[in-house]
Simulated scan of single mutants.
Amino acid sequence: MKTWKLVSGILSIILFVFVAFQSCAAGVGNALAENGESGGSAGIIVAVLLLAGGIVSICARKGGRGLNIALIVIFGIGAVVGFTMAGSFADLNIWAGWCLINAVLAVVSIVKQK
């Protein structure tokens, strides 16, 4: 699990850049279309949670149970926000899926440590 946490942390930090730029573009599109959707804003929240989760994931590879719980909370919130607020910003479902995968694997890591 140490290798997975390092890899997922690095990928999450890299994905932060893509999700942030994509969410800014989606937010501008929502504002110009005046459609009342909040997919771009939700994408920015998911991007920040990806960054935070990536940093915690890199730190959690040698850590204990508390850091895994933090990963579950951070990536879990990112998944919930992404899935519930995506709207027409369909790519946000992909990023929320990545958050869900990381949250589930943090649960697996806790179970495996016992």
Rank of each mutant, 00 (worst) to 15 (best):
L32G: 08
G29N: 12
G53K: 02
G63A: 14
G39D: 11
G39V: 06
L50N: 02
G63W: 05
L67K: 11
A60I: 07
R65D: 14
C59L: 15
I55P: 02
K62L: 02
G39L: 09
G66M: 12
A52E: 03
A25M: 14
I58G: 10
G39I: 09
I13Y: 10
G39H: 12
L15S: 09
I55R: 00
G27T: 03
L49W: 01
I45F: 15
L51T: 08
A31S: 15
G43S: 12
A60P: 14
A26S: 11
Q22I: 07
C59G: 11
A60Y: 14
L49G: 04
L50P: 03
L15N: 15
A52S: 13
G43H: 03
L50F: 15
I45N: 04
S57K: 06
E34Y: 10
I44K: 04
E34A: 13
V56L: 08
G39R: 05
G54M: 00
N35M: 01
S57F: 07
A20Q: 14
V17E: 03
S57V: 09
L51W: 14
G40D: 13
V48W: 01
G63K: 04
V48Y: 09
V46G: 06
V17K: 02
G54V: 03
S12F: 13
F16E: 00
A60T: 05
G29K: 09
Q22V: 11
S41H: 02
K62V: 05
V28K: 13
G54L: 05
A25K: 06
I45A: 13
S38G: 07
A42I: 03
V28G: 01
E34L: 13
I13C: 04
A25C: 02
S12T: 08
V48Q: 00
A42F: 09
G66S: 15
A31R: 11
I55A: 11
I58K: 00
I44V: 10
